[in-house]
Design a protein around this nucleic acid. Structure first.
Length: 431
RNA sequence: UCCGCGGUAGCUCAAUUGGCAGAGCGCUCGGCUGUUAACCGAAUGGUUGGAGGUUCGAGUCCUCCCCGCGGAGCCA
């Protein structure tokens, strides 16, 4: 019998097939039994009637949820079935029967309980489509850069220096020397870009901030790119194309999954039609003040301010040219106004916050050293980084994208912990 | 770290002024030939987060601690 996966079922109507999967749920009504079978690609309903197959019926009747099984039967079109086609079951071979009732119920459960059982929760309902969409986002990200001649590369996870002196780092003991888990691969990608031209990577980064919000975790995967000979505007153009490409690819490839999450795909596609508004920081502050926000020039945009800008434009919005004091040492000053830097944040709609932070980088030794000194940072851990400005320095730009936030936004799920297989949060290290 | 809400059966939640500890779901058993988180009936299930205290009597009031959830700040 031909082995297929559930997502291929529609192409095999009328044929006898075999599925390998798990029992998601079952329902019965006297002499007819319905089995919801899942295999990671989808779910399908199997049906068994008692008068026709009494032995099979009584064996199947006793199966617990999440029994792993191999099912053989014939596929047929069936409008009464949830997925439109149905499997007439001929044989069930039980691979393993659960020893205890499956803890994740098909009713509402609290986040704390679900997170304690994350290893089982990911088998159910919304979680499977979300993780498949995550895969599609990662792939679309890589595809985008590969097609444009970027080189995939890596930055170290264990580092001796921080990227931004201010942020909290996880520290560890490196053979007796202090070391840190990377909070960004950026500085290393700048070096690699000077070797390879245009580079990108996706890697884990770590923030020891005690954040407790729906957009923060302590470990997350960042997609970063760094481009030699790209100025600020070229950087923003690339980011805009990237976001459009990801949404386009994912909404085409995973339309069914997005539908199962009740995401309005047409609205999402409409939102990312370019160009994205580009607000000068001063302009953004003015707009927010006019809307009644308590913000003055020099303040960071808080969560309510970001949400407000997203609502106003109904699409991703760039805020650019921030005051230099607000931003880290590696950002290049704006030639037209040296109190500002050539940086931009991309804010997602619907309150998902900043999804990209990027800038044109400092490219002279003088400016870099003076920026480091102004922030009270030591020079010697950054000597290698300063070297990049000593030997054939070139204008260059780059950015980092918080992939979990992008996925949460695309999925329309409220909390990023749901789009990460095993999220790490303050006070959550299990499972 | 700060602010707010919460912790009662395996899960989700009730419990009036301080007065016998309850329901739905799940598991088990029985019924039902088209179920969609099926439905109907029965049975099972408790150190009320922990430690002290007040009281004839505490799930309920007081003190301290632990844990969870939401938000802020910080950031992607």
């Amino acid at each position: 019998m031909k082995g297929i996966t559930i997502d291929q079922a529609r192409d095999h109507i009328g044929e006898g097939i075999t599925l390998r999967g798990w029992l998601y749920n079952k329902r019965s009504s006297g002499k007819i039994l319905f089995l919801q079978i899942r295999d990671g690609t989808g779910t399908i309903q199997g049906v068994i009637t008692e008068p026709e197959k009494p032995d099979l019926f009584s064996r199947a009747e006793g199966l617990a949820r999440e029994t792993s099984l191999i099912v053989t039967g014939r596929l047929r079109e069936e409008v009464r079935a949830p997925s439109g086609c149905e499997l007439e079951v001929d044989e069930i071979s039980v691979v393993h029967e659960p020893t205890d009732p499956f803890p994740i119920e098909l009713k509402e459960q609290t986040p704390g309980f679900l997170m304690d059982h994350r290893h089982l929760w990911i088998r159910t309902g919304r979680q499977v489509p979300i993780l498949r969409i995550r895969d599609a986002v990662f792939r679309a990200f890589r595809e985008f850069f590969h097609e444009r001649g970027f080189v995939a590369t890596e930055a170290p996870i264990i580092t001796g220096t921080s990227v931004e002196g201010t942020t909290t780092l996880f520290s560890l003991d490196y053979f007796g020397e202090p070391a840190y888990l990377s909070q960004s691969g950026q500085l290393y990608l700048e070096a690699t870009a000077m070797a390879l031209g245009k580079v990108y990577w996706i890697g884990p980064v770590f923030r020891a901030e005690k954040s407790k919000t729906r957009k923060h975790v302590t470990e997350f995967w960042m997609g970063e790119a760094e481009m030699a000979y790209f100025d600020h505007n070229a950087n923003l153009n690339l980011q805009e194309d990237l976001v459009s490409h990801i949404v386009d690819a994912v909404t085409k490839e995973r339309r069914d999954e997005l539908g199962r999450l009740d995401r309005d795909v047409d609205r999402l596609r409409e939102e990312v039609k370019g160009p994205f508004p580009r607000l000068d920081y001063a302009e953004a502050v003015k707009i927010l003040q006019d809307e009644g926000h308590e913000i003055s020039f020099g303040d960071d945009l808080g969560a309510p301010e970001e949400t407000s800008l997203g609502e106003r434009f109904g699409k991703p919005v760039f805020v650019e040219r921030f005051p230099i004091s607000m931003k880290p040492f590696y950002m290049k000053r704006d030639g037209k106004d040296p109190t500002r830097v050539l940086a931009a944040d991309l804010i997602a709609p619907d309150g998902y916050g900043e999804i990209i932070g990027g800038s044109q980088r400092v490219d002279t030794v003088e400016e870099l050293v003076s920026q480091l000194k102004e922030r009270g940072l030591p020079l010697e851990p950054y000597e290698w980084y300063i070297d990049l400005r000593r030997y054939g320095s070139a204008p260059h730009s780059g950015f980092g994208m918080g992939l979990a936030r992008v996925i949460a936004w695309i999925c329309g799920v409220p909390h990023i912990r749901e789009v990460i297989p095993f999220p790490r949060q303050i006070h959550r290290l299990y499972p």
